[in-house]
């Protein structure tokens, strides 16, 4: 797993993809921090992360699109699968590398908050709540993106599918407005955005953490099964 993690992370930054994604996230961070600064209140720093949430939906599919589809297209998956490593190890290696890129971008995005914090007194609970929430949301989306990438040889298809899923999970609770209470509850239970909400209020929601971590474990598990099932096709 470590060999794959190392290689994948390297390869993100050997090709422009890693730099473009990190750069795009940091550019947007800069833009929103600037807007926040104009309000003159460090309280709103946390809202930067909430705004970033929408943009991450676009950038995460770009990070994950190549994970398995590229390997399959270049037939390098033959080297991975015929090596004495478990399929689960391969999946987690790829997952952690993709998450690593996102993690790097989000963590650097924290720097302006720290700089601002040295001049004022932002609500750190809110800032770190948002930061943690973004990472958890990111991890869940990355695992879904990696799974979708394992279904296709085309990176474009993988990216669009992942984007579609993240939009779906985002808007799912606004389309249930007219439906019965049970449906509304069920939907808000699986909605990524309602799971994210507690963090934006600085609440460390254990159930949300467990929810996101479960999504990661489940999707990585399905991806591993998917790779194994390909052997039988």
């Amino acid at each position: 797993m470590r060999a794959i993690l190392k290689r994948e992370l390297r390869s993100y930054f050997l090709s422009p993809i890693g730099y473009v994604c990190v750069g795009a996230i940091l550019f947007l961070f800069g833009l929103f921090y600037f807007t926040v600064m104009q309000t003159g209140s460090s309280y709103y720093i946390a809202s930067v992360f909430a705004t970033m949430f929408n943009w991450n939906m676009i950038i995460i599919p770009i990070i994950t699109m190549r994970t398995f589809s590229e390997d399959r297209k270049n037939k390098t998956d033959q080297a991975l699968i015929t090596a004495p490593v478990s399929v689960t190890g391969i999946v987690w290696g790829k997952f952690l590398a993709a998450l690593g890129v996102f993690f790097i971008a989000m963590t650097i995005g924290l720097l302006p908050a720290i700089v601002v914090g040295s001049f004022g007194d932002p609500s750190w609970g809110l800032v770190f709540g948002n930061y943690l929430g973004s990472l958890l949301y990111g991890a869940a989306m990355v695992s879904i993106g990696v799974f979708l990438s394992s279904l296709t040889e085309s990176q474009v298809v993988a990216a669009i599918a992942t984007f579609g899923v993240s939009v779906f999970l985002m808007v799912i609770n606004s389309v249930t407005a007219g439906a019965g209470e049970f449906v509304v509850q069920l939907v808000s239970w699986i909605s990524f955005s309602s799971r994210y909400m507690p963090f934006t209020q600085g609440i460390f929601s254990v159930s949300s953490v467990i929810f996101y971590v479960s999504v990661v474990v489940i999707f990585n598990f399905i991806t591993a099964r998917r790779l194994e099932s390909r052997r039988w096709s």
Partner: peptide
């Protein structure tokens, strides 16, 4: 050694 060598072109 598979039919198409499993090489990573970016390394």
């Amino acid at each position: 050694l598979p039919e198409i060598p499993p090489l990573y072109m970016d390394m």
